[in-house]
């Protein structure tokens, strides 16, 4: 799934209901809110058995790795504890801050993230508005079915398509030579990596990205359009003054989320599409730490870079959320 969409739709469900229902509608009025653990366990032990495995899973596969990030500050010995052997303080943090390659991949990550945000983010809005203007339901349905399809493709397949179309004998180069241009070896040229990456993103995510906007569009009251028509508004004015304001909350929430996942550029896609010839533009934080950690075996150094990225990501989500709460009153939780 696209990261943005995934998180936004989840967020509202996160709100924990403070005014919990009383445990049972029976006569036990005195302790509606505060059961002791003994009472709760006796009454709900079967429910708690449902939680045992999932909680064990979360602790082992989610929280142990979180704690495992301490190796960013400890020396790790292969075969030793996954939490490292001895404290080395900020040694690895200083190391990457002084590493020119780190700053190169950091810049690449920011550029790719920004391009994705500026170019890919608005397109689902445009496509949703275009779909909304269609009068034939069938045609609309057909366009939706077709444009949602790429979302269901594995990243390996998407990468395969990219190689297929950008090959020297592929369709794009055939078009270029047909109009008298020179063949371009897209995948071997650093200056072409960003356009290729962004185009493949557009192909894959824009269609499915319309879902939430289309849902928001259906909630706009038809009477607003009727009233505006009586007042003499044309279709353009309707789009501008009714449709767009109607989906503004959705746009804002999705924008916040996209800003939050700014640095989380498609790691797997980059890994499949880049090669040493294109490192200068294609190498991002995630792929660099993958090579440093798993190809060269500098686990602590790579973990320090990973932690840095995660902390920035978390900060971005939290601050974007705080800003939107202030400005537009829309918040994720």
């Amino acid at each position: 799934m696209t990261h943005g969409t995934e998180a936004v739709v989840t967020a509202p469900a996160v709100v924990v209901d403070a005014t919990a229902d009383p445990p049972s509608s029976g006569g036990k009025q005195r302790r509606v809110r505060r059961d002791t653990w003994a009472t709760a366990l006796r009454r709900d032990w079967r429910l708690y058995t449902f939680l045992v495995l999932p909680i064990a899973f979360l602790l082992l596969f989610r929280y142990v790795p979180m704690a495992g990030n301490v190796i960013a500050f400890r020396r790790f010995r292969p075969g030793g504890s996954i939490f490292g052997d001895e404290w080395v303080g900020l040694h690895y943090v200083e190391m990457f801050l002084n590493d020119p390659t780190f700053w190169r991949v950091f810049t690449n990550t920011v550029v790719l993230g920004a391009l994705t945000l500026v170019i890919v983010f608005p397109l689902p809005i445009v496509l949703a508005l275009m779909l909304n203007e269609l009068r034939s339901r069938r045609f609309k349905k057909a366009v939706q079915t077709i444009t949602y399809l790429p979302h269901f493709m594995s990243i390996v397949i998407v990468a395969g398509f990219v190689y297929e179309l950008t090959a020297l004998n592929g369709t794009i180069n055939q078009i270029i030579t047909a109009v008298g241009g020179e063949e371009i070896s897209f995948m071997q040229r650093a200056d072409w990596f960003r356009p290729v990456y962004v185009s493949s993103e557009i192909w894959q995510v824009v269609g499915f990205g319309t879902i939430l906007y289309l849902a928001a569009l259906t909630t706009i009251d038809d009477q607003l359009y009727e009233a505006s028509r009586i007042d003499g508004a044309n279709r353009w004015q309707q789009i501008w003054h009714i449709t767009l304001p109607g989906i503004r909350p959705t746009i804002v929430v999705l924008l916040i989320l996209n800003i939050g996942t700014f640095l989380a550029v498609g790691f797997e896609k980059v890994l499949l599409l880049y090669n040493p010839l294109t490192y200068s533009t294609a190498d991002v934080i995630a792929t660099y730490l993958y090579r440093v950690g798993l190809t060269s075996g500098s686990f602590s150094y790579a973990a320090a870079i990973g932690l840095f990225e995660a902390v920035i990501g978390l900060t971005l989500v939290l601050s974007a959320n705080a800003i939107s709460k202030r400005l537009v009153g829309a918040s994720l939780w």
Partner: peptide, 24 residues
């Protein structure tokens, strides 16, 4: 309940990352 829900929600915004997961 809210503690357990919190346990889940945290995993949406922060995860261990590639290296600690690999070592685990």
């Amino acid at each position: 309940r809210s503690v357990f829900i919190g346990l889940v929600v945290v995993t949406m915004f922060f995860n261990g990352g590639l290296i600690p997961n690999y070592l685990l």
